[in-house]
Write a protein that binds this DNA or RNA. Structure first.
Lengths: 144, 144
DNA sequence: CTCACATACTTCAGTACCTGAAACAACCAT
DNA sequence: ATGGTTGTTTCAGGTACTGAAGTATGTGAG
């Protein structure tokens, strides 16, 4: 177990991994860029996007963002200061605070989604058939 | 221009974008996880991986990481404190400091690459033909 | 050669993000 | 009622990042 590292490096797999890395890098780049256009950080944009669908307790936000609840407090604080998010009491449980996007917050979230042109640009060059097989392959990768 | 947002949302494209988002999320998750196993942050892991190929001036590192040079100083500082990276003078230009992975740094970088199992797990379920067409599609996406 | 300008790196102040521990309030089971 | 659990916040500590200022070195025009 000591001498044999990366037993057989299938060159095809290696290249695919590299390509995925490139896609990931590009996706992130464009996401941060789109967020910055709306004066949001990446974390703020992700959180606001979640809230634009439905209000969520802080706890759930932390789970979805895969971080500690204490972290969410700060991000929501900053968004609340800017009037994009508000905290509402949960009628069913007085411990819980529901974070919800304000009307303005929803507008910003939609603008963000629209300017997230990673959708159009790189996918535009693909035919419908190519998109179909891409969908199939990505699904298979993710179900593993 | 006010009423008509996201003119026609091709559902197929939308789903593919969503799937790419999921792949990106998963990739990042696993990358950070692999880095953490070696007591590295994501930024440190990326920088160390670059240096494990060849020594680079701080300036080049900033370009590759798409951040300010002043930021690289701090990351290299932390890695240098742990003996994973060292600063060498550039014989050709005394202004330049070449950051280079130490022997220990190279070991950690290789360990990182090995434990980056996003390669094996999700791609393992794909046949060679599927990998080939995935490669083709990713290439086409990136060349745009 | 010298002077002005550009380049490479660092330092510093300021912000955001993130974690883990501790505090607090509210829920819930016994 | 009591004791344990859960949801949120606060705080301390650390990393990441930017932009401005500072230092040292290279370089080109005169």
């Amino acid at each position: 177990m000591a001498t044999q590292k990366t037993p057989r490096i299938d060159p095809l797999t290696l290249e695919v991994v590299e390509l995925i890395g490139a896609v990931v890098a590009r996706y992130h780049e464009e996401y941060e860029e789109a967020a910055a256009e709306h004066a949001l950080t990446g974390a703020q944009a992700r959180l606001l996007s979640l809230l634009s669908m439905e209000p969520l307790p802080m706890r759930r936000l932390a789970q979805k963002l895969k971080c500690e609840p204490s972290n969410v407090t700060g991000i929501v604080d900053r968004l609340e200061t800017r009037g994009l998010v508000e905290r509402r009491p949960d009628p069913a449980d007085r411990r819980v605070k529901l974070a919800a996007a304000t009307e303005e917050g929803c507008r910003v979230a939609h603008g963000l989604r629209d300017s997230l042109n990673f959708a159009r640009e790189p996918l535009a060059g693909l035919s419908d058939n190519e998109r179909l097989s891409l969908r199939h392959l990505l699904r298979r990768m993710l179900e593993a």
